[in-house]
């Protein structure tokens, strides 16, 4: 008997059940297809304007910085301004995201845009979020050529653009946005739910920012 069969049969023995038990199978099938949403906190169930405001407030509470701009066209300037304010070189790493690509980067002559995944030598990276969660100020980022995962973790400063229309009230709604059919798979390889910059409290429980991931997380909210 394979290890797989041995484990499964021991589980069935302990549960006093059989594998072809129709009622259990039906209950499992139902749960998987219906995916009930359980208890949704009232906190994030707001109209669009209040939801965006809550998202910004919650993100700031967990040490992210938030900047709001009116349109995508204002993003390159906001990025350049952030880099200047942190005394960082005028260089930004980003993936092939179409929303980012259509922004007027060439208008900023002094800003160097590096494309592709990060190799660890970038001071600042830029991503576009797939969704946001107002409830907790959480960003949802998905892997792929558009927004390579390495950009989320290797640069010291991570700048994330999010469209206010993509901010959901609760985590369940935001997760619904990532269950997309991409290359035949139901999920992207990596989904990162990011709530604030990296931190550790492992030495004497003293909370410090910038453990292994970015020291700073700057969120640019477009519209709303």
């Amino acid at each position: 008997m394979s290890a797989r069969e041995a484990i499964l049969s021991r589980i069935r023995q302990s549960l006093d059940a059989t594998g072809d038990d129709g009622a259990r199978r039906a209950a499992v099938g139902r749960r998987l297809s219906e995916a009930p949403r359980g208890v949704i906190p009232a906190r994030g169930q707001l109209d669009a304007k209040a939801r965006t405001a809550l998202f910004c407030e919650q993100a700031e509470k967990i040490q992210a910085t938030v900047q709001r701009v009116k349109s995508p066209d204002a993003v390159p300037k906001a990025v350049a301004g952030y880099l200047r304010s942190k005394n960082l070189p005028a260089t930004i790493r980003m993936g092939a995201d179409e929303r980012l690509a259509s922004m007027p980067w060439s208008a900023l002559k002094s800003l160097e845009v590096r494309s592709g995944p990060s190799d660890g030598d970038d001071e600042a990276g830029l991503s576009h979020a797939t969704a946001g969660v107002a409830e907790t100020g959480t960003l949802v980022l998905t892997s792929g050529t558009a927004n390579p995962t390495t950009i989320n973790f290797l640069p010291e400063h991570h700048i994330v653009v999010i469209d206010a229309a993509d901010i959901a009230g609760d985590l369940e709604s935001a997760l619904a946005a990532v269950r997309v059919d991409r290359n035949g798979a139901t999920m992207p390889r990596t989904v990162n739910l990011i709530s604030g910059p990296s931190r550790s409290g492992d030495i004497e429980q003293k909370l410090l920012l910038g453990a292994h991931g970015p020291r700073a997380l700057h969120i640019i909210v477009v519209g709303g």
Binding site: S143, T145, P148, A185, N192, L193, S195, S198
Partner: peptide, 22 residues
């Protein structure tokens, strides 16, 4: 005592066709 930990990461399979990392 955090509402969410900083990084909650969902991993599904290896890198997909065209993925530049993973």
């Amino acid at each position: 005592g955090q509402d969410m930990s900083v990084y909650t990461t969902l991993s599904t399979g290896p890198r997909q066709e065209g993925d530049p990392d993973g």
